[in-house]
Design a protein around this nucleic acid. Sequence first.
DNA 1: TGCGAGGGTAAACGGCGTTCACTGGGTTGG
DNA 2: CCAACCCAGTGAACGCCGTTTACCCTCGCA
Lengths: 235, 235
Amino acid sequence: MTTTTPGRRERLRAETVTEIKHAARRLLVAGGPTAISLRAIARDLGMTAPALYRYFASLDALILAIVTDLFEDLRATVADAAVAHGDEEPLARVGYMARAFRRWSLDRPAEFALMFGSPVPGVTPFAERCGPLNDAGARFGETFFTVLGEHYARHPFGGEAPDLPDPALRELFKPYLDIFGDRFPLPVIYLFVAAWTRLYGIVAMEVFGHLRWAMTDVEPLFEVELARTVSRLAR
Amino acid sequence: MTTTTPGRRERLRAETVTEIKHAARRLLVAGGPTAISLRAIARDLGMTAPALYRYFASLDALILAIVTDLFEDLRATVADAAVAHGDEEPLARVGYMARAFRRWSLDRPAEFALMFGSPVPGVTPFAERCGPLNDAGARFGETFFTVLGEHYARHPFGGEAPDLPDPALRELFKPYLDIFGDRFPLPVIYLFVAAWTRLYGIVAMEVFGHLRWAMTDVEPLFEVELARTVSRLAR
DNA sequence: TGCGAGGGTAAACGGCGTTCACTGGGTTGG
DNA sequence: CCAACCCAGTGAACGCCGTTTACCCTCGCA
């Protein structure tokens, strides 16, 4: 009866892995990043905690896998926003991607905190040199660079350099260049990183509630800043 | 022998409180926010954990007190930077304050994470309506508003409104107005909040290491963004 | 049919926040 | 001067947590 597919064992194993991740995400949205615990997950799945070590080497490894999945989820959402407006100008599509990023983050504050919040341990994020996460981050960046590439293919960059000579920029952005190569003029890289920090700043502030002391609704601020930032990319 | 000063008991108590806070901060810088534990503090002080409940109602209460102290420390540092350049233009002083904020944060990544990082619990920061912290935050904002006030006293604001009519801005910034009153034109409040989110964004990104994939040194980016943002306040 | 690998368990260790009953010494009022 | 009281501090306990170890049982394959 049981089809002897060569991967039957593996299939059950994969199902258990996704069940574990699902339980972890339930705990995450229910109680924040610190609410993820192996014992609670095991309770949810009707198992005991040590059994989970057959699937993940540690709690940190599990959380790392979840963060990686979340990055892929976010990437797909942002990419969808770009293709949904595929008939518009590339820079306009960047705006829709930024809005998709904001919406995704506001809808998933716990997940956002896990991905972009303070990487607690010592000082360094646990994401230092851990393959899968770096790959996910690279694919996330790639979705932006693809659309930006379309724009600069149509409108060559003629903006001003930010007071820094190209050799200095090349040294400054060595990590970026090592990952993505130099497909863009160096000032464009500069402007993109600046835009990304602005986008992150305003979204993180809003998600973490750090602006509630000042304003009731961050969206108008977001839209104005987005327009300014995108237009800066258009020089 | 023992001088019966009416506050002797209170003095010993206050000393113990600061000892507890010092131990907590040692743990914080050594292992990040999650490393703060009552039992470890008690070990450091040669006490048992339950004794700490004579001084703080819970671990959260202790952490809240520490965050409040840190805000005061940061505020004083930023204010010092302003008075150290008291002979310069107010907007230039705002720049020095921003640099002091960045330097303080880079030198104290764990403290920064505790203050500005993800407020884990459910969704809301535990800082919702807790008197002392709100007061500290208000004093922190006040140091900026004081210098900004000096500037606009000399150079009346003549910039453009950010596409939003004043009544809408007044509604938008109701929380701010309730705390600080309307000492500035509404567009100025808008520009300040925008500037604050940019400052927070770039500093948080740098402290959390979220820019290491791209660049080796964030300072040039910080300086350019700071110059742009401050000049925007000068309209 | 036998066997090995892999999924699962119970028990245990050490660490955590927090509560509770209790003690002992300094403070204070009579 | 002494009794009463207050209060810092203790020890034990409860229920969480991650993780390790030794063990078991069952499935799948040779």
